[in-house]
Structure formats: structure tokens, C-alpha cells
């Protein structure tokens, strides 16, 4: 394999790992859109809150798990599977941080829904949209107020290192895979499986699908709509929190406005895949991640943040329902 192919594979991996975080956030947009038919502008900021929750609880958890393991040297040599995912105590730490942060974000998402969106359930969409913009700005500015506007360094929950491929043959030289990328893929995969099971196999998942299909009929069948909406917000926010942790492990500089661009790009991902469609959100997320990284690698990198919007405009012009979405007509 020549070096340009290796370079391409490298960028593909980087793109997919960025895309995995977009996918997790896009799922939140898509699920809320499914049940409430509105775009939760503030969803991107949940990612920021997740990152900061991890920032504050991360050192505690890692100290706890390392104590549990008898304070091993974090830079020690590992072999086998551990080489790819890190020592067991940091895996446990990551799992704990994820559980704590996801629960916190879920609680926060449900609180926002209860305080700001529920009173507006039957109001015009534009009112809800403006409220969502307000909530988003409020979380961001309160974040600047409480956490400070300057970027912070996310704690090292796992000791990140690149995994060398040259041992597997000369042709792989130059290809690096970060441990954080492996973990991103693993965690995202696990969450997706869990989400699919939840939506397809459980009673509450069935209620969510029913609500997305026909809200009135769903309410008439005795489903507690408020409960399902609340649950959906919690679920979406939990995934957003997880995305915050995963993205911060790979890009450890975090600040209160980090959720804006992340959220917008994830929204584009949700639209690209077809809003309201779970598989579409994942597909869209991965695509946006790859496209963004490819533009940075092979195109004008200064246009990085404009790429997602260009994609959005193109998709809305060519196929407004998204790649996997269905056309919906307005009833006249």
C-alpha cells in the first residue's frame, strides 16, 4: 500500500471517530424531533455540560479507581487487549465517569424540558423555537459565568497513546490509531446497541415510536405523553453527555461555547440522515465527521466550520427529507 492510501485510511479513521460523537448528539436531536416535532436548539450545549461534568468528576473517579488498583504507574507497559483499550482501572474509571455524567445530563435535560418546553406544548412552533434559542444562549452564558470563558484542559481519564501498526507489517507504517479512538468506537457501538434494544424491544420504546407516529392516537391509547417526552429528553441528553466525554478525551481543550458548533454540525448530521430517523442520525453523523476531516486534510482547512453548513444547504435543496427519511406532506 502506498503512502497516500495509508494517509487516506488515517483520515477516514479520524473522520469516523469525530463522526461517532456527532452521531451521538444527532440521535438526541432526532429523538426529540420524533416525539415533539421541534428542534431542540439547546441540545448541543448538553455536550458542553457533559464535558464540564466530566472535568469536575473525572479526577475524583480516576483517583478512586487507581486506588482500587493499588496505584499502578499509569505509564506502565501493557500488552494484548489492554494495549488497545488501556488498563482495567482506567476502563472502570471511564465507565464510572460515563454513568455519572450521563445521569447528570439526563436529569438536566428533563429539567429543561419540564421548565421551558412543557408549558409551551401546544403553542406555535416559532414560540418553542425562540425559547430553545433562549435556553441555548442561557446555558452558554451561564457556563461562561460559572466555568469561566477561558478554555480548560480535560483531565486524563484514560492514558491516551497511539497504537503502532508497523508491527503488523511494513506496509502499515504511518498509520496510527489512538486508544481514545478505539474507546470512542467501542462506547458508541455499545450505546447504539443499547438504544436499539431500548427502542425496539421495550414497552417505553414502543411508546416512543407510537408517539412519533401519531401523537393524538398515542395519547388516546392511554400513553402518558408527558412521561414519554420527558424520558426521550433524558435519553437524548444522556447520549449528549456521553458524546461530551468521548470528544473531550480526544480533544481535551473544553470551553463553555464548545457545544455551539458541535451541536450545529450534529443537527446537520441529523438532517442529512433524515430527521426523525435513528439509523439516519448515525449515518449522517459519520458522514459529516468524515467529510469535515477530509476537507481539512485535502481541501482548504480554513473553511472547516463552513463545510457542514454547505452540506446542509445542498441536502435541503436536493433531498430535503434526508438520505433515509420519508417525505411528509402538509395536510390541506
Amino acid at each position: 500500500m502506498d503512502s497516500s492510501t495509508i494517509e487516506f485510511i488515517q483520515q477516514l479513521i479520524n473522520g469516523l471517530s469525530l463522526g461517532a460523537t456527532y452521531a451521538l448528539i444527532a440521535l438526541g436531536y432526532t429523538m426529540v424531533f420524533g416525539v415533539l416535532r421541534f428542534i431542540n436548539f439547546a441540545h448541543g450545549d448538553i455536550l458542553m455540560l457533559g464535558s464540564f461534568a466530566g472535568f469536575y468528576c473525572g479526577p475524583w473517579v480516576t483517583a478512586f479507581t487507581r486506588k482500587l488498583a493499588g496505584n499502578p504507574d499509569p505509564t506502565r507497559d501493557l500488552t494484548g487487549f489492554q494495549d488497545w483499550v488501556g488498563p482495567w482501572e482506567s476502563l472502570l474509571g471511564l465507565a464510572l465517569v460515563l454513568v455519572v455524567v450521563m445521569s447528570a445530563c439526563a436529569a438536566f435535560g428533563m429539567l429543561v424540558e419540564f421548565l421551558c418546553y412543557r408549558p409551551l406544548r401546544n403553542r406555535p412552533r416559532i414560540t418553542v423555537l425562540i425559547t430553545a434559542i433562549g435556553v441555548s444562549l442561557f446555558i452558554e452564558s451561564m457556563g461562561q459565568f460559572i466555568f469561566g470563558a477561558a478554555p480548560r484542559l480535560f483531565p486524563e481519564i484514560i492514558s491516551d497513546r497511539s497504537i503502532d501498526f508497523s508491527a503488523h507489517g511494513e506496509q502499515w507504517a504511518g498509520l496510527t490509531l489512538l486508544r481514545s479512538q478505539v474507546l470512542t468506537f467501542l462506547v458508541t457501538g455499545l450505546l447504539l446497541v443499547a438504544l436499539t434494544l431500548l427502542v425496539k424491544r421495550t414497552k417505553i420504546g414502543m411508546a416512543m415510536r407510537a408517539l412519533a407516529f401519531n401523537p393524538t392516537a398515542c395519547a388516546l391509547m392511554g400513553v402518558n405523553v408527558s412521561l414519554i417526552v420527558s424520558f426521550t429528553f433524558g435519553l437524548g441528553s444522556a447520549l449528549g453527555g456521553a458524546a461530551g466525554i468521548l470528544s473531550s478525551i480526544e480533544r481535551p481543550s473544553i470551553d463553555p461555547l464548545m457545544g455551539v458548533l458541535f451541536g450545529l454540525k450534529a443537527f446537520v448530521a441529523a438532517v442529512l440522515g433524515g430527521i426523525g430517523n435513528l439509523a439516519g442520525a448515525v449515518l449522517g453523523g459519520l458522514l459529516i465527521g468524515v467529510i469535515e476531516i477530509m476537507v481539512v486534510a485535502y481541501g482548504p482547512s480554513t473553511y472547516r466550520d463552513a463545510v457542514a453548513f454547505a452540506v446542509l444547504i445542498v441536502i435541503l435543496l436536493l433531498r430535503p427529507a434526508g438520505l433515509l427519511g420519508k417525505n411528509v406532506r402538509e395536510k390541506v
Binding site: 408549558p119 414560540t127 425559547t131 433562549g134 444562549l137
Partner: peptide, 16 residues
């Protein structure tokens, strides 16, 4: 922005 965002939220809840 804290004040602006609060204006937006409260206005939409109370006087859209």
C-alpha cells in the same frame, strides 16, 4: 447574554 437569554425565555413563556 445571560440577560438577553432570560428575556427570550421569560417573554416566550409569559408574553409571546
Amino acid at each position: 447574554m445571560i440577560i438577553y437569554s432570560l428575556i427570550l425565555i421569560i417573554l416566550m413563556l409569559a408574553r409571546p
